[in-house]
Design a binder for these strands. Structure first.
Lengths: 125, 125
DNA sequence: AGGGGTACTTACCAACAGGTGAGTACCCGA
DNA sequence: TCGGGTACTCACCTGTTGGTAAGTACCCCT
């Protein structure tokens, strides 16, 4: 289980931050939640094209454990669960901004393709 | 080999930056080279307690390919190779600063152990 | 002559990340 | 009644990551 181990010992701050951000979809989840404020499970799944339900849940659970994400369950039928960022999640997202800028510059430099994850307008609909 | 694939397509800048930073020792290598300016292979190995020679080389080669690290070979006997950061490496390290600060704060919050990398002072403190 | 240093390379192996596809339990609209 | 939506859980499988240990080739010091 990746759900227990984590939390150090760390070499440095970057190490500790990486431990929490590492995961194929985590930075995207962070961005989605920061952008929309609150998102339901299925909304996140649709917003992250290609993610598997297993990984989405696993990442959300880990991020909840790490204090980045808040999970609000409404005991209704059909089930409703809302995810949002905690203050730590928000600040982490802010700390990632400069890294994102560097990466964007790198994309421009090497002329890599950029898969649009732009959600304000969906590419295929 | 992980030496070829990489370079996108990426979802966003963070994705692109992560692609380059991901690797157990890369952020530490980045910090070591930024701190010392120039380091020889064996110096890096000693500066990163626990790293295997295989991983050190592999990471250095990938970082060279990604344009973060410059490798200068002196054709002498015994062999001498000096590693240093390129301007892109330096700017990446700078972009990681805020993430490092966030991580340091997290370490403080959760009270995790912090393994000193046994340098004059620990990274991003 | 033996041990240690330089900077690697190679083969083998274990652990883990992440994907696939199915199942659960309940509800709603056609 | 059938298909689809809600939010998951579980078993299985594969590819990648990273570790171990050995080898290479040449040199210096004792």
């Amino acid at each position: 289980m990746a759900t227990s181990a984590r939390r150090g010992p760390y070499f440095c701050g970057i190490d500790a931050a990486m431990d929490v951000v590492t995961g194929k979809w985590k930075s995207l989840i962070l961005w989605e939640l920061d952008h929309y404020g609150v998102r339901r499970f299925a909304e996140l799944r649709r917003g992250l094209p290609g993610v598997s339900e297993k990984m989405l849940i696993q990442h959300l659970r880990e991020m909840e454990e790490d204090g980045l994400v808040h999970r609000e369950v409404y005991r209704e039928v059909p089930p409703k669960v809302e995810y949002s960022l905690t203050e730590h999640g928000v600040s982490l997202n802010a700390a990632l901004a400069s890294l994102g800028a560097w990466g964007t510059e790198r994309i421009r430099r090497i002329g890599a393709e950029k898969v649009s994850a732009d959600v304000t307008e969906t590419p295929q609909s």
